[in-house]
Amino acid sequence: MLIHPWDTPQDDTEWQQWLAVHDFGQLVVNGLPGEAPYSQPAHFVFDPGCGDVLTHLARPNPVWPAIEADPRVLLSVVDDYVHVPGPWQAPVGTPSEHGVPTSFYAAVQLHCTAHPVDDPVLKAELLNRQMAHFQPEGGSAEAAVGEAPFGRMLSGIRGLRLEVTQVRAKFKYGSQKPLDVQERTAAGLAARGGPRDEAARVHHLRRGSAGGHAGTG
């Protein structure tokens, strides 16, 4: 992933807070010899305190032999993405049709060492941590070894702890553009009102000249 200086996170807090609420991504695992890499969609919980990611997958999932052969994996999360039409990006004094369209998006890639979790007690703890994150309002029983309703299901899954070894994060929201182009783009996103336009507009304004993060390149 190419990351220009103006697309880098302002600090670790920026990507950590974003990842805390964008908790569904692609777990990419090196394939076995002669096979392509595997990509597994998954919900996960990121713990910034220890820097680990927690998730679980079904025991028959084909990623397990690949992880055991090579525990180096990548967790990729992309969201808040929109298409930005060319006319919004045209520099002042040039025809609007000469503007170059682009994409806005946020992306975090976590390089990790994968650690399968098979101990039933640890699996139950992992599941309960995920449940507390995704269902904080409660309403479901906790997982406990040998206890209904989920105890008997523990054998059908494997937990996975991802030890983060490197982070690559990118917030591509045009913060290097001139202020007039940024303002035109923000207005365009507000007027269009598409599914992710407001989230992209917030990033665009937060990281732009008004936020003191504009570049010149």
Score class of each variant (00 low, 15 high):
4 H>G: 06
5 P>A: 13
6 W>E: 15
6 W>N: 05
12 D>C: 03
13 T>R: 12
13 T>F: 02
17 Q>G: 04
18 W>K: 10
19 L>Q: 07
26 Q>I: 05
27 L>P: 11
28 V>H: 01
33 P>Q: 05
33 P>G: 10
36 A>Y: 08
36 A>K: 04
40 Q>G: 05
41 P>G: 07
41 P>H: 08
42 A>N: 01
42 A>G: 02
44 F>Q: 05
45 V>D: 03
46 F>T: 08
47 D>S: 11
47 D>I: 03
47 D>Y: 03
48 P>C: 02
49 G>I: 00
51 G>M: 00
52 D>W: 01
52 D>S: 12
53 V>K: 01
53 V>R: 07
53 V>A: 12
53 V>H: 09
53 V>W: 05
54 L>R: 14
56 H>P: 02
56 H>S: 05
56 H>Q: 09
58 A>F: 08
59 R>N: 01
61 N>F: 05
64 W>H: 05
65 P>G: 08
65 P>V: 01
66 A>M: 03
67 I>H: 10
69 A>L: 03
70 D>Q: 09
75 L>Y: 04
78 V>D: 04
80 D>A: 13
81 Y>S: 13
82 V>H: 07
83 H>S: 15
83 H>Q: 11
86 G>V: 06
86 G>I: 06
87 P>L: 10
91 P>Y: 12
91 P>V: 14
92 V>Q: 14
95 P>Y: 10
96 S>T: 14
98 H>P: 00
98 H>E: 14
101 P>G: 09
102 T>A: 11
102 T>M: 09
103 S>T: 14
106 A>G: 13
111 H>Y: 11
112 C>Q: 03
114 A>G: 07
116 P>E: 09
117 V>Y: 06
120 P>Y: 08
123 K>M: 15
124 A>H: 04
125 E>S: 10
127 L>N: 01
127 L>F: 14
127 L>Q: 06
129 R>C: 07
131 M>D: 05
131 M>C: 11
133 H>I: 07
133 H>C: 11
134 F>S: 06
136 P>I: 04
137 E>Q: 15
138 G>Y: 03
139 G>L: 09
139 G>W: 02
140 S>H: 10
141 A>V: 00
142 E>V: 06
143 A>Q: 00
144 A>E: 14
145 V>R: 08
146 G>R: 03
148 A>V: 01
149 P>E: 09
150 F>Q: 05
150 F>S: 06
150 F>N: 00
151 G>E: 05
151 G>R: 06
152 R>S: 14
155 S>R: 14
155 S>P: 01
155 S>M: 03
156 G>Q: 13
157 I>M: 06
160 L>E: 02
161 R>H: 01
161 R>Y: 07
163 E>V: 11
166 Q>K: 12
167 V>Y: 00
167 V>M: 02
170 K>Q: 12
170 K>C: 15
170 K>T: 13
173 Y>E: 00
175 S>I: 00
177 K>T: 06
180 D>S: 15
180 D>H: 14
183 E>P: 05
183 E>T: 12
184 R>H: 10
185 T>E: 14
186 A>H: 12
187 A>C: 03
188 G>P: 13
188 G>T: 10
192 R>G: 15
193 G>N: 15
194 G>W: 00
196 R>T: 13
197 D>H: 05
199 A>C: 09
199 A>Q: 11
201 R>H: 08
202 V>F: 06
202 V>G: 07
212 G>Y: 04
214 A>S: 15
